[in-house]
Amino acid sequence: MELSLFHYAEMLAFMASIICYKSIIKKPYWVLLPYMLMIVAAEIIGKQLADKQLYKDNVHLFNITTVIEFVVFFFLFYKNVNGSYRKEITKFAIPVYMVAAVINQLFIQGFDKFHTNTMLLGTVLIIIFVFFYFYEAFSKMEPVNLLKEPMFWIATGLFLFYLGDFTINLMHPYFVKNHLQKRWTHIFRIINHNLIIFEYLCISIAIIVCSKNRSALKLQS
């Protein structure tokens, strides 16, 4: 089975979460360990299903894992946003999104089609929560080195990935209208795969930063 470069980026983040598990286990970032295990397993299984042309099973797999993906990142934003109303919004988004995803897959789009409706909803929410985080980060009175903040790297990776994904999907109707579906698919894969690489490199850096912060605290004590 031939893997793409973005698969190795995901594996790198998974390995980082294993190596640095002691640094993240007592922090909200503990969720990245089971999350990365799920992502790596889903991508490998999905690749095998696609190679066997079992496209319906592939859709079922990613209809589940992408919903979990959004919930994981909503949780991390909830733990890292402090403003009262912003924190309430991120907290409220988790059950609302899960209910919306279930309703969509049961009664609207169905389980046999990819959940583009709730994928779009999740993308918009992620972008909003990124703005929440950066607004608070840049509004702090005391100086903060954001490069040493794990959530800075996660928010940066998520912002570029979902903004890029959202933008390329907005272009889809234009390509369909002009009978350029194959070209859109080619462009989408190139952009999407590179954005995935960037996203998971950022997550790897976030985990390493978390580990370094723990080491620094030990030295200070």
Rank of each mutant, 00 (worst) to 15 (best):
L5K: 15
L5Y: 15
H7E: 09
Y8H: 09
E10D: 05
M11D: 01
A13E: 00
S17D: 06
I18C: 15
I18R: 05
C20A: 13
K22H: 04
I24Y: 00
K26C: 01
W30G: 06
V31L: 14
P34Q: 11
L37H: 01
L37A: 09
I39L: 07
V40T: 06
A42V: 09
I45G: 07
I45K: 06
G46T: 09
Q48Y: 13
A50L: 11
A50T: 07
K52E: 08
K52P: 00
Y55L: 14
N58S: 06
V59A: 08
L61R: 09
F62G: 07
I64Q: 12
I64Y: 12
T65P: 09
I68S: 12
L76N: 12
F77A: 13
F77P: 10
F77T: 10
K79A: 14
V81E: 04
N82Y: 15
G83N: 10
Y85N: 14
Y85M: 12
Y85R: 15
Y85Q: 13
Y85E: 12
R86F: 09
K87P: 05
K87S: 10
I89W: 14
I89P: 08
K91H: 13
F92T: 14
P95D: 11
Y97Q: 05
A101Y: 13
Q105W: 01
L106M: 15
I108S: 09
F111C: 02
F114H: 08
T116F: 15
T116A: 14
T118I: 14
L120W: 12
G122I: 07
G122D: 13
V124A: 14
Y133L: 04
F134N: 02
S139C: 11
S139R: 13
S139Y: 07
K140V: 07
V144S: 00
V144H: 02
N145E: 00
N145T: 02
L146N: 05
L146M: 05
L147Y: 01
E149I: 05
P150L: 08
I154P: 03
A155I: 05
G157K: 12
L158D: 09
F161I: 11
Y162F: 15
L163A: 11
G164D: 11
G164E: 14
D165I: 07
D165M: 13
L170A: 07
Y174G: 04
L180D: 04
L180Y: 08
W184V: 02
I187E: 13
R189C: 03
N192Y: 08
L195N: 06
I197N: 03
F198D: 00
E199F: 03
Y200A: 01
Y200D: 06
L201A: 10
L201T: 11
L201C: 08
S204T: 13
S204Y: 03
I208K: 00
N213G: 00
S215V: 04
A216D: 08
A216C: 00
K218I: 03
K218D: 06
K218C: 04
L219H: 01
Q220P: 01
